[in-house]
């Protein structure tokens, strides 16, 4: 039960999320990848809390969850708004602001 495995797992999850954000094109999927990243962080925090024998990391995980929830709400609202306007949630379709 060495914490390294947990850290590796969380790093892996974080990377998957990050790659997902970069390669996926659907706003909602991108968004889910971000959430995955946040949860990977939660895992890291909890692992470190365990390693350090503290509660701080677990408490932080709570806060991260709250933030993630708030992000979900705001993000979904925005994505819904744009979906209503243009009937597509693909990031590729959002091309009005191309450089």
């Amino acid at each position: 039960m060495t914490p390294t495995y947990y850290l590796l797992l969380s790093a892996l999850l974080f990377s998957i999320g990050a790659v997902g954000v970069l390669v996926r094109r659907n706003a909602i999927v991108v968004f889910m990848c971000v959430e995955l990243m946040l949860n990977a962080v939660n895992l890291t925090l909890v692992t470190f809390a365990r390693v350090n024998g503290q509660l701080d990391g677990q408490v932080m995980a709570f806060f991260v969850m709250v933030v993630a929830a708030a992000e979900v709400v705001v993000g979904l609202a925005i994505i819904m708004a744009i979906f209503k306007s243009r009937r597509s949630a693909s990031v590729d379709d959002s091309n009005l602001l191309k450089y």
Partner: peptide, 23 residues
């Protein structure tokens, strides 16, 4: 229907609230 999204969002918020209320 969009109302479901609204409900889902509200649920998330209140659920998170409970996360703090339990401890």
């Amino acid at each position: 229907p969009i109302a479901y999204y609204l409900t889902a969002m509200l649920f998330i918020l209140f659920d998170i609230e409970m996360v703090f209320l339990y401890p």
